Simulated scan of single mutants.
Amino acid sequence: MIQVDISASKRDSFGKCAMRRLRVSGNTPAVLYGNGKDVMALQLETTPFLKSLFQISRKNAIVNLSISGDDTPRHVMMKEIQTDPVDDSLIHADFFEINLQQPKAFTVPIEFVGTAKGTDLGGDLVIHNASIQIEGLPLDVPDTVSVDITDLAIGDSITYSAIGLSDNLKMVSDATALCVEVVVTVATAAAE
């Protein structure tokens, strides 16, 4: 799983006017909660925070959040990012603290590798599920799961049960559900 370092400082100002001043000064308000601890109000420098967001956009990622005044970084995940609907600027961020030693379920994208031989013979590749639910320790969960589709002929399919996972991971998705298949196209069926 991707890991990113982000720095923050504690925030003691609240309310609309204070948040507006904070944003104008180049900072983004945020909150940290979870793991049985009290909610903590934070602020982050917007420019470095945006760069970090581009690295982890739409991915499972562990954020090592260094808070000024704390000795050890907190391991968190992005829970929500609020943006302005007009100019797409950052309004607020929510971080959720997690325990790296406790298993958790994650949705992991499936990467389909190769070209199915059935598509070369006139079939259509139909992707039913492009992600899989996996449970495991956060640092053991992969960024993507690769599935080789090169041997798929017309009429062949791959279910979740065919996806190989390491022993320290558990599949949460229904093992009988279809991931991908090659079907006969209407044009190919009409030609026969």
Rank of each mutant, 00 (worst) to 15 (best):
M1K: 13
V4H: 05
V4I: 15
D5R: 14
D5M: 10
D5P: 05
S7E: 14
S9C: 02
S9H: 08
K10E: 08
K10H: 02
F14P: 03
G15N: 06
A18G: 06
R21W: 04
R21D: 12
R23N: 05
S25T: 05
S25R: 09
A30T: 11
V31Y: 01
V31Q: 06
L32D: 01
L32M: 12
G36W: 05
A41V: 02
L42Q: 11
T47A: 09
T47P: 01
P48H: 03
F49V: 11
F49L: 14
F49M: 14
L50V: 14
K51H: 13
K51I: 02
K51L: 08
K51C: 04
S52V: 09
F54C: 08
I56N: 07
S57M: 11
R58H: 14
K59T: 04
N60Q: 08
S68E: 15
D70V: 02
D71G: 11
D71H: 07
V76L: 05
M77E: 13
K79R: 14
I81G: 06
T83A: 12
D84I: 08
P85E: 07
P85S: 06
P85I: 11
V86K: 07
D88S: 13
D88Y: 10
S89L: 06
S89K: 12
S89G: 06
L90V: 07
H92P: 09
A93Y: 07
E97C: 09
I98R: 09
Q101F: 04
P103N: 03
A105S: 15
A105I: 14
F106V: 09
F106N: 07
T107Q: 13
T107K: 14
V108T: 14
P109H: 05
E111R: 15
F112M: 13
V113L: 10
V113E: 06
A116S: 10
T119I: 13
L125V: 10
I127F: 06
I127M: 09
H128E: 13
H128V: 03
N129C: 12
N129I: 04
A130G: 13
I132Q: 11
G136K: 15
G136Q: 15
P138W: 10
P142N: 05
T144Q: 12
S146Y: 00
V147M: 04
D148F: 03
I149L: 03
T150D: 10
L152G: 00
D156M: 12
S157K: 12
S157P: 01
I158C: 05
T159D: 07
S161C: 06
A162G: 02
L165F: 06
D167F: 02
D167T: 13
K170I: 12
K170T: 14
K170D: 07
S173F: 03
S173A: 04
D174H: 10
A177D: 13
L178H: 00
C179M: 13
C179E: 01
C179R: 03
E181L: 04
V182W: 02
V184P: 00
T185L: 00
T185Y: 00
T185H: 00
T185R: 00
T188N: 05
A190K: 15
A191Y: 00
E192Y: 00
